[in-house]
């Protein structure tokens, strides 16, 4: 607990981390509190006010079906952030497990797992994702599964590398000498010492995943209407980008600003959590 408190305090002192955290906080809070923030329904159409430019009652305008764009973006944040978070969580779960086992077991287990990783990394990722999504009936759950299941390989490699270094540390040797079980050594002596790298990589992965999800939805392969993610909103703006410019513009801005915020935080975490320097 204290660890987190100190980390937050340190992050707050770092300017770019502070900006990143503020952006993420604004987006996350508005996503969570969506119904409280807007009087409009995200999916109720009113064609009489379709495609209206930004105005006092609709600060970011309305979309082609007369839905308040700001409302759509706020609700879209739920989907985009939700998918980004859940898919990343899944990738971290798989990647960490594979990396831990691979690095600690060594030998043929390590060999097989790492060859699988090599093969999976050998395919162009977007192509595989498109294929997998195309072959299934897209839903939020399926997208999370596919994105998560295809993004864990780098984490597995990173964690494996860490484990190989940590395995040789004297505190692990001490644990081995004490006769502590392999499972406990892995979970209590090795895993906690890899969390720093995992945190950094996972943070950055959330940003990447949000972009990939937006690309899928933009291509019509992701979240299906009437539900909105930022990608589907950009997609709708494609129909009349000149006259209804606000639709794609604001949805695009939402993505860019959010991903920048996440990357700012991720990069600061990287320099703060330099795993070789954390002992002091």
């Amino acid at each position: 607990m204290k660890d987190w408190y100190y980390l937050l305090k340190k992050l707050w002192r770092d300017k770019s981390a502070r900006i990143g955290m503020l952006i993420i906080a604004v987006v996350a809070v508005s996503a969570l509190a969506a119904p409280l923030l807007t009087p409009y329904e995200p999916n109720t159409q009113d064609l009489s006010i379709a495609a209206q430019a930004p105005s006092f009652s609709h600060p970011l305008g309305t979309d082609l079906y007369g839905r308040d764009l700001l409302t759509r973006l706020i609700y879209g944040a739920r989907v985009s952030l939700g998918i980004g978070l859940c898919a990343t969580l899944l990738a971290v779960l798989i990647g960490t497990t594979v990396g831990l086992i691979s690095g600690y077991a060594g030998g043929w287990v390590d060999n097989i797992l790492m060859r699988i990783v090599d093969v999976l990394l050998g395919f162009p990722r977007l192509f595989v994702i498109l294929l997998a999504v195309g072959l299934s009936t897209p839903s939020v759950k399926i997208i999370i599964l596919i994105l998560g299941a295809l993004s864990w390989m780098e984490i597995a490699r990173i964690v494996r590398g860490e484990v190989i270094v940590i395995r040789e540390m004297l505190y692990v040797k001490s644990a081995v000498a004490l006769g502590i079980s392999k499972r406990k050594i892995l979970l209590e002596y090795i895993l906690p010492n890899t969390t720093d790298v995992i945190t950094v990589y996972a943070t950055l992965l959330i940003g990447t995943t949000i972009i990939v999800e937006a690309s899928l939805s933009f291509l019509g392969l992701g979240v299906q209407p009437p539900d909105a993610s930022w990608g589907t909103i950009i997609n709708q703006g494609r129909i009349d980008p000149i006259n209804a410019w606000w639709i794609s513009t604001f949805a695009g801005l939402a993505i860019v600003i959010t991903v920048i915020g996440i990357n700012l935080l991720g990069d600061s975490l990287r320099s703060l959590l330099n795993p070789r320097a954390d002992q002091n």
Binding site: Y171, S174, E188, P192
Partner: peptide, 14 residues
């Protein structure tokens, strides 16, 4: 054993 390097002999997260 009690190893030579005390800094490395304790799990930093325990």
């Amino acid at each position: 054993p009690v190893f030579q390097d005390p800094d490395g002999s304790l799990n930093p997260h325990k």
